[in-house]
Amino acid sequence: MTLARQGDTLTAGARERRRAAAREGRAPGRTRIGYLFVSLYAFLTLAFGIAPAVYSVVLAFTNADGGFAGLDNFSKVVTDFRFWPAVLHVTAYLVIWLIGLLIFVVALALIVHALSVRWASTSLRFVYYLPGALAGASSVLLWLFVLDPTASPVSGLLRAMGFTSFVQVIQPGNLPAIFAIIAFWTGAGGWIVIMYGALNNISTEVIEAARIDGANAVQTALRIQLPMLRKWIAYMGVMSLAAGTQLFVEPQLLSQASNAIVPNDYSLNQLAYQYAFQQNDFNGAAAISLLLLVVALLLSWVFVTRGGLFEREE
């Protein structure tokens, strides 16, 4: 991937960078236009990237009167009786979702890529991708219908699995799987398209060589294509893990639609929301948000510096 140029690596020294700039035809020296063009973006980055993060750090370490509180807020939320169940819920959901995502996205991308009929491959990708248009509340609403045996298009299937009412479907034990299915339904198509693109980038000579050496389609997929997809699979895993910890809209709507059979503090983000809006405890809310933000930041940081997807391959 030539996604970033060599001159942009963190280790490059200033002189080296300037030379690289000259070589690549960037405006020589520091021009005012650069500052002008980047000023608005820098302002938004400060206002909606750095400042909220810093402010939630401040809130998380202070009490309601503004005094320093040390780790009190953290110990308060962590010992909250709702905290660990929420962690457990989100973890169960993440495990099911990530495993499903990794297996099915990679398998589907490989199969679709192996199709020799062009229109079939194009239209399959489109069908898989289309649900991506329904994100957020719309997709959850649609799945409420699908999961309600009285109205569902697959009510036969639900009944065969022993579910005769909506309340039976949304038993607590089923929820992680349900959220995983909804997330997979909306998100998997985009990843299939990305994996497909990555497969297209593998040179045909490599595949041809494997075939001449006697590898069949399955062997080619497992021994050649899969290892070459590794970076993209890691990218998908990290992104999905980070996004999954933020679970909010699915349990929120399901809680509303089930008369609170699904609790409104099912996920960590919901718990943070409860702290801010039900208990008016912004410090507690900030503490939970900060924990989630740190997880996301760590994942993203590790990936940017170690993942290699955004650096030039040597």
Binding site: A53, S56, Q246, F248, N269, Y273, A286, S289, L293
Partner: peptide, 8 residues
């Protein structure tokens, strides 16, 4: 994820 910054 953009949601991580919403509450902050």
């Amino acid at each position: 994820p953009s949601t991580a910054l919403v509450l902050p």
